[in-house]
Design a protein around this nucleic acid. Structure first.
Lengths: 252, 252
DNA sequence: CGTAACGAACATGTCTGGTGTTTGAATGTC
DNA sequence: GACATTCAAACACCAGACATGTTCGTTACG
């Protein structure tokens, strides 16, 4: 069991019971207690949990979005496939607004090096794209959320309003036919709306675990999306409902 | 002779004669020709030179600004001392606009972790500052210059115009009493002016090699600077002239 | 005061990045 | 067109970085 698997184990236990013990994890993973402690220390510095004597307790309240360092470990393969499909939908020379989040970051990796114009809404996205001389990067302004490194606030919205895009690539926390596109954070909602306002088309990217989910911040009715790219793990009926709303759903 | 020294050697030869030979460099550095080729390939991808059969020729025209990868190797110690002094001039809780460039990046490193609000004009600066949760990072929008990773254009100027700062920290390519503050790039000039317009004070940071230099883009008369931080290598009379214009010159 | 947990320090194994050598292909020169 | 030089891909090698385990003195809790 390597480092990544151990973290997964810790996360699973935390989700289950809200706390973990060093000795128990060492037993379950087959590694020494010292290694477990180092894992937990790292996760503590990332804001995932808080160390207590003998173990750790969860810091991620139920219903809230897990921190970036956890989300980037989830559905990695699906996100990569989705990102490749999204990038294929962006023609050469196009201008796109690119959301923050782990899926959008994969899209950035796919777009980097292609002759397109991209406005990323996160610093990681900007970093990835700016390495390539072929790609024009027009970074949005805004306040940076620590840890998440996404851009939000009035400056971000003003940046988006100042440009017109061929497409907006939007990540999200939930997509359902009834409640539409939803996100965890209200400031993100405002940014996503601004992206869509400035774009001719909206491409939503969401792995299948997001299909059918509803979170707090309402972005738009599902019909406002032009294309939804997801993986093939989503329930058939949920996809059918979304299609019925006029969305072009692409599964990869 | 390690990798960094070899690059220095290449740069020195290029500055001297405008071209270098693989065999000659291998001889001089005591490494194999293959290693020299790899060095040159790397420098070519960074835009410093162009490979030709048997060697390479310089791509940096005289009078133009050398690429970022070269500037960051120059006067490192002086830049660090200057940056520490600049950071000391920024009080806790202040809001500052922070220029792009190698000196400003050092200032970002000094400011990171302190409870201040910073608007960096470069992606590297944003990266450094965003790692710390204490520091509020309000990144400027704008187009990203490849290689340099600084932000410019109307979006950057609009971002600056939308905020008011306690201080603008401006890097520059030249400072002289007669010609004032100058930069190599006209788009950078516009950004620097926008920074100064939105700020109560202007702090210029320039190592002593910049004192007395004049480059193409005129930013402002020297009297528009409130404080100039430089190292103690600058000629006495040039410093005296700048002081006579009403600038508070700090040498470290 | 005793036990369990902690963390600093050191040792070990693994992996990656930089370097050298070889070799066949490509390119320039005559 | 023939030859010499240069190039780059492939492989081997080494050093430094990183992860892990062990030991041991210190600290916290009952």
């Amino acid at each position: 069991m390597d480092s990544a698997e151990r973290v997964d184990l810790v996360i699973a236990r935390l989700k289950d019971t809200g706390e973990v013990a060093v000795a128990e994890l060492a037993e379950a993973s087959g590694h020494s207690e010292m290694t477990i402690r180092r894992d937990l220390d790292r996760l503590e510095s990332q804001g995932v949990l808080r160390r207590v004597r003998g173990g750790a307790v969860s810091l991620v309240p139920r219903g809230q979005e897990p921190p970036y360092v956890l989300r980037e470990r989830q559905a990695v393969e699906a996100k990569r496939r989705i990102a490749a499909q999204v990038a294929a939908l962006v023609p050469t020379g196009a201008a796109v607004a690119l959301d923050s989040g782990t899926t959008a970051l994969e899209v950035a990796r796919e777009l980097a090096g292609r002759p397109v114009t991209v406005m990323p809404l996160s610093l990681q996205g900007a970093d990835v794209l700016a390495r390539s001389a072929e790609t024009t990067v027009l970074v949005a302004g805004g306040e940076v959320r620590p840890g998440e490194l996404n851009l939000h606030g009035p400056l971000a919205e003003a940046s988006l309003a100042a440009v017109r895009f061929d497409a907006a690539v939007v990540g999200c926390c939930g997509v359902s036919a009834g409640e539409g596109v939803t996100a965890h954070d209200l400031q993100d909602v405002a940014v996503k709306r601004a992206m869509m306002r400035s774009s001719q088309r909206t491409i939503a990217a969401a792995d299948s675990t997001k299909i059918g989910l509803v979170t707090m911040g309402h972005v738009c009715p599902v019909g406002d999306i032009d294309t939804l790219v997801t993986d093939d793990g989503a329930p058939e009926d949920a996809i059918a409902e979304i299609r019925a709303a006029g969305v072009d759903v692409v599964t990869v």
